[in-house]
């Protein structure tokens, strides 16, 4: 991902076209195996754990091998400045696609709050919907709907763990920026320390998020089954948590690369791509904190 732009005249270098590779095909085999066994499991056709475990192992092995291969290609100076731009653009567009994925779930949240719940309570031209189908249902949020699916529940106060989590993630965006500045100034030890600090903040965030889920399930009766509130709450925060997990793994991996001497002050896109991703999960969290927890 990093380049040796300075090592040779970049304008004279051919674009890096990799040799034929079995990684993508094997990754697809792994993905197909995982999804097929999960499908069978969901339909109670008892596939047993073996295909899932084998597919998962192959998946992680290929992902690891592929990224290690890219890191090696980068560190051996095979990437020109043009390849570096490719990775920058590719990562930007990938993050854009992730934004749109979250947009679907945020859209569901806004739709429920602004349209479907008011309509169920008889707003606008929907008087009869309310009178005939769901009498006495009122437009309040949070709600688990007119049938009170999942039973009574309480919500998580934004001003305890979620506030702490907000501060943790915002701080981690600062620490990873410190790491980036240290890397650009050539202070490798400081970079590594700031990275571990960022990883620790991410890990603590995940720990708090997990304990929040446990509290929700065991004490508040707030579950995935708690109507539209539970659905949007757990799907939004859950997908965000998965992205934080992925981001933390990515940070551990670039920190490992930093410790084995990868990256240079002037070229380190592998690092920057992870930092961009981390800022992205941070921004999503701010959206969650405002629209899911506070409002």
């Amino acid at each position: 991902m990093a380049t040796h732009a300075a090592a040779s005249d970049p304008s004279n270098r051919r674009y890096f076209v990799p040799a034929p590779s079995a990684w993508p095909f094997m990754l697809t085999v792994a993905l197909g195996t995982i999804l097929y066994s999960v499908s069978m499991y969901l339909e109670e056709r008892h596939p047993g754990p073996i295909p899932f475990v084998l597919g998962g192992a192959l998946f992680f092995y290929i992902v690891f091998t592929w990224f290690r291969g890219v890191a090696t290609e980068s560190e051996t100076g095979q990437y020109s400045a043009q390849v570096d731009r490719t990775y920058r653009l590719g990562m930007s567009w990938f993050i854009f696609s992730e934004v749109m994925f979250f947009a679907a779930f945020f859209g569901a949240l806004y739709y429920a709050r602004e349209l479907s719940v008011p309509w169920l309570s008889g707003e606008g031209s929907r008087v009869l919907t309310n009178e005939v189908l769901w009498p006495a249902f009122e437009n309040i949020w949070p709600t688990n709907g007119p049938a009170a699916i999942g039973g009574d529940f309480k919500t998580i106060s934004p001003w305890h763990l979620p506030l702490i989590n907000t501060l943790l993630l915002l701080t981690s965006s600062v620490t990873i920026t410190f790491a980036h500045h240290a890397l650009k100034e050539g202070h490798r030890r400081a970079t590594i320390l700031w990275m571990w600090a960022t990883i620790a903040l991410g890990a603590v965030f995940l720990y708090f998020q997990a304990s929040e889920y446990i509290e929700a399930y065991h004490e508040l009766n707030l579950t995935l089954n708690s109507g539209i509130y539970g659905s949007t709450f757990f799907m939004l925060t859950g997908f965000h948590g998965m992205h934080v997990t992925l981001g933390t793994i990515m940070m551990i991996s670039v920190t490992g690369r930093l410790m084995s001497g990868h990256f240079k002050p002037e070229s380190h896109f592998g690092f920057e791509g992870v930092a961009w991703y981390w800022h992205f999960v941070d921004v999503v969290w701010v959206g969650l904190f405002i629209f899911v927890y506070i409002l």
Binding site: A108, Y111, A112, L115, S116, V117, W119, L120, L133, W134, T143, N144, G145, P146, A147, I149, G150, L224, N225, G227, I228, Y229, G230, S231, T232, F234, M235
Partner: peptide, 11 residues
């Protein structure tokens, strides 16, 4: 989940 289930507040 109740995204598309009116009984749960979805649609």
């Amino acid at each position: 989940t109740s995204f598309f289930n009116a009984a749960g507040g979805g649609d």
